[in-house]
Design a protein around this nucleic acid. Structure first.
Lengths: 196, 196
DNA sequence: TAACAAACCTACTGATTACTCGGTTGGCTT
DNA sequence: AAGCCAACCGAGTAATCAGTAGGTTTGTTA
């Protein structure tokens, strides 16, 4: 009976992913999620103790799945040319999965509100991503390949600021924002300016 | 009796501003807003036909108030060096009013969800801001002061992407993000790279 | 085969949601 | 003084919200 339970959990998470993407955490309804998963509401709450925990489960599942797909080792030190390639590939991929981008955009925005269950998750996620990029750039500086006076932390923050800012504009107005192109151009500019 | 009505409207909008900032549109409660404004819920709905219209009223009021404060003429053509100064001043100001930044961040994120009343507002706002910056840069190109092959639209989009992306990071982790400094450094970099 | 527990269900809770109906009040205009 | 209307309020509306209590089914394991 373990197998059936696991399958159900996956189904619930998949439906919850869509619900949170469409309406955010506050706009999401457990009743609709249960319905979509072909289960009653108490049945849903047998698998997850509450709405907040369900959201966290969805986010963790996404982190894990996307982490291994994109193949970036967030704990190691990626050589900086590889970092830029990885980011380019990530944005290219994202441009083909607007739903995924929407989930992250909506929840990042919602996360700054009072008492939001994803606040911690959002902050830690940014810290991880930025520190990873920062390490790459610092290694490049130490190897003498990048400018010695490069502000690596500010540069790392900027990389993800542009990525997220373009996602926001792209979701609101896809016809006017060529996200991969705009991000690629930005990266090229950065690559030129950081070289020693 | 007109004066009292106007004062009440202003009071309602001020309280609603805080409520939408703290909880977003979906998380906001008309009952709490009415309470904070010292009025009953039907009393509130006498002034605004519904929750969506109240949100729009708050956003329009903010647009108007902030528009005249920052002194940017969105319809005219700002000389590009002035554009950069204006943006710098805007980010400096924003760093002193986190509540205001939070309202815009939360609503921009929420706006991409299904059937959100601020979707149109968010899209039009970006269009206005980006077109304004784009016109500035194009004028600079035509005057021969900026690179002839500068992609002015992509550059304009990037300016606001960085601004919003840094706001997001700053709200989540104010200790690790020096927003005005990071944005200033970015602008300096842009200014160097766009010059003819 | 007996015990056990995971995986559900029905039925319900009280709270909250945005919003409506049908008033009353009180100041301004004619 | 009569009439009018903006500015409210009390009392509800039906719907939805997340979550609970307590029981039943069903497969696994001892």
């Amino acid at each position: 009976m373990v197998a059936r339970g696991d399958a159900r959990r996956e189904r619930i998470i998949a439906v919850a992913f869509q619900e949170f993407t469409a309406f955010g955490f506050r706009g999401a309804s457990l009743a609709r999620i249960a319905d979509g998963a072909g289960i009653t509401q108490p049945g849903l709450l047998h698998h997850f103790p509450g709405k907040a925990e369900l959201l966290i489960a969805v986010l963790h599942e996404r982190d894990q799945r996307d982490g291994q797909r994109i193949g970036i080792d967030l704990d190691g030190v990626t050589p900086w040319p590889r970092l830029f390639d990885d980011l380019r590939a990530l944005v290219d991929f994202n441009s083909r999965v607007p739903g995924l981008v929407q989930l992250f955009t909506v929840l990042n925005g919602e996360a700054v509100t009072d008492g939001h269950p994803a606040r911690e998750w959002a902050r830690e996620r940014y810290r991880r991503l930025i520190e990873h990029a920062d390490r790459s750039l610092r290694a490049g500086v130490e190897a003498g390949e990048l400018k010695a006076d490069l502000d690596t932390l500010a540069c790392a923050q900027r990389l993800f600021a542009v990525m997220d800012g373009l996602q926001q504009q792209w979701l609101l107005d896809p016809d006017r924002v060529d996200m991969p192109r705009a991000f690629g151009a930005f990266l090229a500019e950065v690559e030129r300016s950081v070289r020693a």
